[in-house]
Design a protein around this nucleic acid. Structure first.
Lengths: 419, 419
DNA sequence: AACTTTTTTTCGGACACCAAAAAAAATAAC
DNA sequence: GTTATTTTTTTTGGTGTCCGAAAAAAAGTT
């Protein structure tokens, strides 16, 4: 049953809305906040005054408001206080840990890329290594752990959001690597872990909510095959957090050998190693591990196709057909308004497109097929970080409103949150 | 961005909660309502007094409250006023229209099954026929159209919730049959249309919210193959309302001929005609229309399998394997906590089960496979009606609170809603 | 210096909630 | 048969949040 509603809920929600408005539109005057949020001027004053007291926002008086020298009382701009609180974004990929320190305004204050050895990383060794890396990162930044409110992690592979573990991933030798638990214990911050494609999805929604909202799917062809789902206006990650495992959904029963050990997964037809395997006329049951492909192997194949090499072209065309079939299954199951294709392999989209539409047409009845738009998006690794930031900020804007100011205390300069 | 919150929202939500509590638990005293909703006794009195004024609930004074003769002021039970408003549930299937008149307490007041000719039903003729049937039904029931607040429709096949049309369905000869528009125009009531398996999903959630909530999937094997998805605690029907088209998701590229005209759909391996086709050694490209199977053909096949017929057994076993593959794809994509299998074909589940687990194991890597429970549910046609009712009642409980009582007017017996 | 314009704040009212007190309506005790 | 006890319901008064309107503030304009 729905929960009961009370005043507290109103306050939180409206406060959250004000923060969201400031986050999206930068420094704003109260009157504009009122227009944007549809709250009355009186209410805006009340809320912002509270947020100022809490140190979550700042008044921008001193600085020149680049005013067009209009008549009337000049507007005083308000902005988020960047130093109110910090979050950390962590991206885990093969041999790589990317760390970002992000302030409350969503700006990346500091970032670093460190290396680790994927081949030996397992549940025993990796969590400690990660904690150490973050600790050092914070120390160098001069930010105390107590000022870090959240840590968001994005990892390649199968991520169990619920248990906070990486079930298995190309980035790790071992399985079931616990991440959330160790980080929470070490830093006391709230910690979340997600699949990396989910973060791309989140980033798209943040960057253009008009276009990317409601129900849409993101398919990433890169090192492996990933998917992110935005359903009914929220990121969907399933009951245990491993939803959208597009890459390991079966395409052909008993088909090509996949990195996961099963036969016929979509990944076994679409990913780097699959393309190289097909273009080199290696048998379908060639062990993916023995195929040294990666993003560089993919690049070579794209070059070949560009110069008209028929094996390469055929491999891409066939992969396109498989993609079309995969797309068809996603559409049948999810009925998205839009599908976004991205990832390093999108540079080869021209060689796949024809096959893709063929596959889609073969696989799906027209009534279901004609109701979606397709975006092809050039790949940018920063999307993952953007998604982590978007998600963290969204959570902050919603969660930060628990212990509001005590009564109408006559505005003591109580910057508890900063102190 | 989130909408602003105000008092109105609180009032609606709490009123809705009170109605929901009464709906679920039958007649209750105010004090129990308070406990259940966590609203204070004072608030419960205020809200219920308003609802009484509006005629949405009734006080059960006269009747013996089967009191265990306790001390203290006796509790006065409150219950929903059945006559406050009515809804109509419509089930559209092959040659069949089922109509139910449901009162505000969720009781079926009257029901009727009428026949129509599927073979000639198209966008021109059917809507009028449906309106006529409903009009007559209401007349016989002696309920004015103005007392009908909602009409919920469930149809087999591909239903576009957004446009309010049946895109195509075994129940109709034509395509794109408009339903919501004509009904709304004719009766002025809010009208909704859904896929029938979605209604089963809704019914399961209503009947046991503890077990069926969060993220789960329902697969129905019957005349055709249907799916319903409950994701993040709400029914999911996709951007245009045609999500969960499990039956027409491709299983094998270029495979068996499906009723939809495409090759290799899951339905072409799992449905009534597919089973008969396989058991009779007909070629895979035999046109489904020429195969007279239906539920009766299925029943015969089940009998055969029961008596050890090897063709029938093999057909079921193979269908089981396909089901396992389909299941694997659903799990990879959706990661449900639970999957429910139902439909007339479940009587044959014993013959399919082994194959199903085989298929699932072949198709999906273990890490993704072991996180769900499977329910096999004996089929009951009434589920669809239950789902329609559950959905309607849920909507009523939420929407009915727009124009609350005018101020603290000293309780005039204003039964506007009934009048 | 007075007027106009625009933004922000203050003030008082409305309303939905709640806690506590009061009222109501029964049984139990004497 | 009256009083006490118990339990439910209602009433009263208080709090917090929002809002509209009025007031105040802070500029430019005349």
């Amino acid at each position: 049953m729905t929960r009961k509603a009370d005043r507290d809920q109103i306050r939180r929600q409206n406060r959250s809305i004000v923060l969201q408005a400031l986050r999206r539109n930068g420094p704003m005057a109260r009157i504009d906040l009122g227009q944007m949020t549809r709250l009355s001027p009186a209410t805006v004053t009340a809320i912002t005054s509270d947020l100022l007291d809490q140190g979550l926002i700042l008044s921008l008086e001193s600085e020149e408001p680049k005013a067009p020298l209009a008549r009337g009382r000049p507007r005083t701009l308000l902005k988020l206080n960047p130093e109110a609180v910090y979050t950390i974004g962590v991206r885990l990929a093969v041999n790589t840990i990317d760390l970002s320190l992000v302030d409350f305004a969503g700006e990346v204050v500091r970032e670093i890329r460190t290396r680790f050895d994927t081949a030996t990383a397992d549940a025993d060794s990796f969590p400690d290594a990660l904690v150490t890396a973050i600790r050092q990162f914070l120390q160098e930044a001069g930010i105390g752990t107590n000022r870090v409110r959240e840590i968001g992690v994005a990892a390649q592979g199968v991520v169990e959001t619920e248990t906070g573990m990486v079930a298995w991933s190309p980035a790790f030798a071992g399985r079931k690597i616990p991440i959330v638990g160790p980080l929470h214990d070490a830093f006391g911050a709230e910690c979340y872990i997600s699949n990396d494609t989910n973060m791309i999805t989140e980033a798209l929604h943040w960057s253009d909510p008009n276009r990317y909202s409601g129900t849409f799917a993101v398919i990433m062809l890169d090192y492996g095959v990933g998917m992110g789902l935005y359903l009914n206006n929220q990121l969907f990650s399933g009951a245990s957090g491993t939803a959208a495992e597009f890459g390991h959904a079966n395409h052909v029963p008993g088909g090509a050998l996949c990195r996961c050990g099963k036969k016929g997964c979509l990944e076994a037809y679409l990913s780097d190693y699959a393309l190289v395997r097909a273009a080199s006329h290696l048998p379908e049951d060639t062990d993916p591990i023995t195929i040294r492909a990666g993003v560089s192997g993919l690049a070579r194949l794209i070059e070949l196709a560009g110069s008209g090499d028929s094996d390469a072209c055929k491999a891409f065309h066939e992969a396109g057909r498989v993609l079309g079939y995969g797309l068809a299954r996603v559409i049948a199951m999810i009925d998205p308004k839009r599908v976004v294709l991205t990832g390093a392999a999108m540079r080869a989209f021209a060689f796949m497109e024809k096959g893709m539409w063929e596959g889609l047409e073969e696989a799906l009845v027209a009534d279901l097929r004609n109701n979606f738009s397709l975006d092809v998006m050039p790949w940018n690794e920063d999307f993952i970080r953007s998604g982590l930031i978007a998600q963290s900020m969204e959570r902050l804007d919603k969660d930060f409103l628990g212990s509001a100011s005590a009564k109408g205390s006559a505005r003591p300069d109580s910057k508890e949150l900063i102190a």
